[in-house]
Write a protein that binds this DNA or RNA. Structure first.
Length: 423
RNA sequence: GUGGCCGUAGCUCAGUGGUAGAGUCCCAGAUUGUGGCUCUGGUUGUCGCGGGUUCGAUCCCCGUCGGUCACCCCA
């Protein structure tokens, strides 16, 4: 690597092996979302910087890939999809019946120092329900996230949904006499409860007139008597999914825009960062697009889920199987006699037109070498075209069984071979 | 932004104050019409970069860049 260019820090190359893994993850995301009747959308990768600073404050710029374009516009590579979604939904909200059930798979960028589970570029699966205030929408999203995990092969021994509701804490703050302006600070303290030392948390809470013991007791009680949480839990219980969910009032999520239920997906035993997270954000569409529309959603990145899949034997095997199913050849045409190459090419073309996955050596090679190629590309059947043409040889590579037939009988013979193998 | 560890062949890594090795991968042959094995042969390194100490540095020292893990943050 003396010369040339490396990938930028935190960016990844996707060679065929890892690209196949990535696509298998995408396939799972997409199929589960579609199973829930969600429709796919996407937006620009580059947006006005203001779209992101508007809701979160200017300090967010530090973690943005942003620059001034040739038209003197301040632009940023998207760090998340929700603001874009809010704009889209607001702009054409009259064209779609509510509630909207939308999902997206796209690439995002955050200028952060990379570490395990976090890169500067990543793919994210976003699912949102807009125009529905009922907690049933939150439950639907949580169920979707659970089913995505199950589709990867995880079960209740591998992960848990930690569910909370910000209103539980905003009510708590109101009862404690915390001013409107300080509620955000209060939520930040709760969010950091597990990470900060108790003395630090106690000191911060004292500034708001709250005792740490009261907060701890409230969390320990575990049953916040929240109407919306009760509905969500009952909904999930009716689906038979309650075993995946636990109430954890320590979940607040860092984002300022959440207004109600919030949840995160955590692995059990590996101690990774959250696999997915989301919640209700009923004011954001109004803020971005000027249209009052309730909304809730969650996102799952490809990095943490990818790590978790690879580090869990059952899901790793499942992923490998999915990748294998997407690759490989039906047929490999061996050109044993170069003078018959035109006949071989004709056959390759016809088989491809039929829809088979077919490859053949581009350059002349020894027959043994060609069989190796067929093997490496995991072809099911090798076809030898040689001097004896129009007699052709078909060989089932996994079974090492060889048959010979005339060219005009090839289709029938192939059907017979595939039929026997496929069942 | 802060700190720990790391940086030697495409990959995984050994190694020594006297300008470097193994395995693997890749390529070719054994095997000029039959495949995952085996055997043989072969290519590649400015030992991350810059400076310092030294007769001499891949090795010691400083800096820097990159990687990794943790903290901060996490949309």
């Amino acid at each position: 690597m003396a010369k040339g260019f490396d990938t930028l820090p935190g960016f990844r190359d996707f060679y065929p092996e890892s690209c196949a893994v990535r696509n298998a993850i995408f396939d799972t995301w997409r199929s589960v979302a579609q199973r829930y009747g969600f429709v796919e959308y996407d937006g620009p990768v580059l947006e006005p910087t203001g779209l992101y600073t508007r809701k979160s404050g200017a300090e967010i710029v530090n973690q943005l890939f942003c620059f001034t374009d040739k038209g003197e516009r301040e632009v940023a590579l998207r760090p998340e999809l929700t603001p874009t979604l809010a704009r889209l939904a607001a702009a054409r909200q009259r064209e779609y019946k509510k509630p909207l059930r939308w999902f997206s798979i796209g690439q995002f960028f955050r200028y952060e120092k990379q570490q395990k589970g976090r890169t500067r570029e990543f793919y994210q699966f976003n699912c949102d329900i807009l125009g529905e205030t009922s907690p049933a929408a939150d439950a639907e999203l949580i169920a979707l996230s659970i089913d995505v995990m199950r589709a990867f092969g995880f079960d209740e021994t591998h992960f848990r949904i930690r569910l909370s509701d910000r209103r539980v804490w905003t009510d708590f703050a109101a009862r404690a006499g915390v001013g409107e302006a300080s509620v955000g600070d209060f939520l930040q303290i709760i969010d950091k409860l597990d990470r900060d030392k108790p003395e630090v948390s106690a000191e911060k809470l004292a500034a708001l007139g709250i005792a740490l013991e009261d907060v701890q007791a409230f969390i320990a009680a575990g049953d916040p008597q929240s109407e919306s949480l009760g509905i969500v839990r009952a909904d999930l219980a009716a689906r038979g999914l309650e075993r995946f969910v636990e109430i954890d009032l320590g979940i607040v999520r860092g984002l300022a825009y959440y207004t109600g239920a919030v949840f995160e997906v955590f692995d059990i035993g590996k101690g990774m960062r959250a696999v997915a997270g989301g919640g209700r954000y009923d004011k954001l569409v109004e803020l971005i697009g000027g249209v009052d529309m309730a909304a809730a959603g969650f996102a799952m990145g490809d990095v943490v889920i990818g790590d978790l899949i690879r580090e869990t034997p059952a899901t790793a095997a499942r992923l490998d199987a999915a990748v294998a199913a997407q690759s490989g050849l039906d047929l490999f045409i061996i050109v044993a006699d170069e003078t018959k190459r035109p006949e071989a090419l004709r056959m390759v073309q016809e088989l491809r037109d039929t829809g088979f996955r077919v490859a053949s050596p581009i350059a002349p090679a020894k027959v043994g070498k060609q069989f190796q190629m067929a093997e490496e590309q995991r072809a099911h059947i090798a076809v030898v075209i040689g001097a004896e043409y129009p007699l052709v040889t078909l060989k089932n590579l996994p079974l090492r069984l060889e048959t010979i037939c005339r060219r005009e009988d090839f289709d029938a013979e192939l059907t017979r071979l595939l039929g026997g193998a496929v069942g």
